[in-house]
Nucleic acid binder design. Sequence first.
DNA 1: TTGTATGCGTTATCAA
DNA 2: TTGATAACGCATACAA
Lengths: 336, 336
Amino acid sequence: MARKRGTSAAVKIVDVAAAANVAPMTVSRVLNAPDRVSPATAARVREAIDKLGYVPNLIAGGLSSRRSRMIAAIVPTIAHPLFAAPVSAFTDAMSQAGYHVLLGLSGYQEDLDMPGLIRAVLGRRPDGLLLVGSHHPPAVAALLREAAVPVVEMFDFTPNPIDMLVGFDHREVGVEVARFFAGRGHKRFAVARGNDARAVERGAGFAATVRELGGTLVGEWIYSAPSGIADGRDAMRRLAPDLAPATAVMCGSDMTALGMLTEARVRGLAVPEQLAICGFGDLEVCRESEPAITSVTVDSAEMGRMAARNLLARIAGESAPARVLMPFRIVPRATT
Amino acid sequence: MARKRGTSAAVKIVDVAAAANVAPMTVSRVLNAPDRVSPATAARVREAIDKLGYVPNLIAGGLSSRRSRMIAAIVPTIAHPLFAAPVSAFTDAMSQAGYHVLLGLSGYQEDLDMPGLIRAVLGRRPDGLLLVGSHHPPAVAALLREAAVPVVEMFDFTPNPIDMLVGFDHREVGVEVARFFAGRGHKRFAVARGNDARAVERGAGFAATVRELGGTLVGEWIYSAPSGIADGRDAMRRLAPDLAPATAVMCGSDMTALGMLTEARVRGLAVPEQLAICGFGDLEVCRESEPAITSVTVDSAEMGRMAARNLLARIAGESAPARVLMPFRIVPRATT
DNA sequence: TTGTATGCGTTATCAA
DNA sequence: TTGATAACGCATACAA
């Protein structure tokens, strides 16, 4: 014996096996495949487990079975409610299925070493990955494809997912918001949005549709993601000179929308008469503000659960759709 | 050979060792203790690592070294910004130290099987635990003490932590808010808060101090945590009959405060003349609302980093303070 | 500075 | 239905 490690007082599978007068393998089966053990021995084993307070070592189990029962979730931030909701739903669904979620925060900085983050996480040999967003450096997709691990991307809807995708079409959101405004007679439009890829797409769809419908884009204000209320107030201050006569603004998020609404009130601008506002995300802040803010809603909890379902199916070797397009809907409220 | 497992195509430490003409142990050292390897061989090994795309299996490493380099974070919810900020900061700090964070969502339901959640997480053999909040079922503390794993509790300040504690004194917050209001001449007070343990403490401190100072608690509205804007609007509707003459309200969170402010505006109540409002958390929503809302601020990002620092110190075998009391401060704004 | 032997705690596989 | 055995891929302890 060439080692002198600290004798772990922790109870192991052999201890349980000894206490129950069975082989370790039988204990393992009681835990992982109960139907392959006779009820009598299973009961005896469970008794021993309880008596000894045995907590199976999933690290050892993972090494042996080559299944870690962990999922890595790579998220730009959990501090924005837009992401917190689907990530929570995803985590809950995974927990119920017996998986644990490793949280990786990628931030919004371009200089973050995303491939490094992915590599670090792959060292844990996760059974699957959740990526929030679909705009990664090319090295990331290569890394993941090579690792041959199931991946779901969530939030975006792009043509060539790394593996699977659950999201919605941000460009189409912009298109629909423009149509919604136009349908209410608006001719003048503006945008206040973040510089993240999704907001860029929504902005592009909006601008293109505005042109198509013969409207005018009178102003555009771009801030750094993630969006806050201050960004909306700021946008209002910058865009104010261009907002008369009546203009309809698409905001990058509900936070931005609330900020614009707040600043509009301060400036005595009539909403929606002089300024119509549409947010994005349908957060509580929109529903409960006064006036209530029109917003684009998407069932983000369902999106998280769907991502979990598809990932679990793929892990189980079942088929799962490569791309799931989630619906969205504009909820008209008092700001339009 | 009694097995026929799938021949893993994955590159392992022996493959790198062969490619670099060294022993596997040398490769391990290049990765975990570079100063114990000569620069020449280290360079050769790194080259092999890059060429083969070797990603060390941390599960195997963890089993061998008995250090998982994982931390489990048990949080009621990440969907509330009050928790999202410190948990983000904690996760960032841990990532920088080479640790991964396992996310466990405990929710607010009493019926959640918290001991079960803890046991499941302990199966991963985390090197440490972060618990948000200090009000656990007794079984949880027993479980964790027995596991002999470093634990930090965050957010509360209680006399007998399981292990370590970084938080602030919620009762004292209530006391200070009452004094703050009284110092501005208020005699009539009300509370709108959640039913979670921390809000209960703040409410108790507030009520006791109000009595002590000869004021009157004219109303109290309690909702289910976590708090939202709707809870604040609701509170305003319920408390309205009791709010004349001028009353000062302590809210359970900034969301509640924003809701009350919104509903007060709808009802034409003058703020702060007829109704003074103080929130809790100092979220952006307070700073950027109009009027800006007075709130209690605590550096929650620093709290998360501090929790990470202390946990890392303890893991490294260094000493770390058992209890760290974080300061808080009332930020007077336009609602008081 | 580098290498060798061994075990970390579990599960897949085959045999009984 | 149960058991014996050999990996799983790496790092510790010790030797050279």
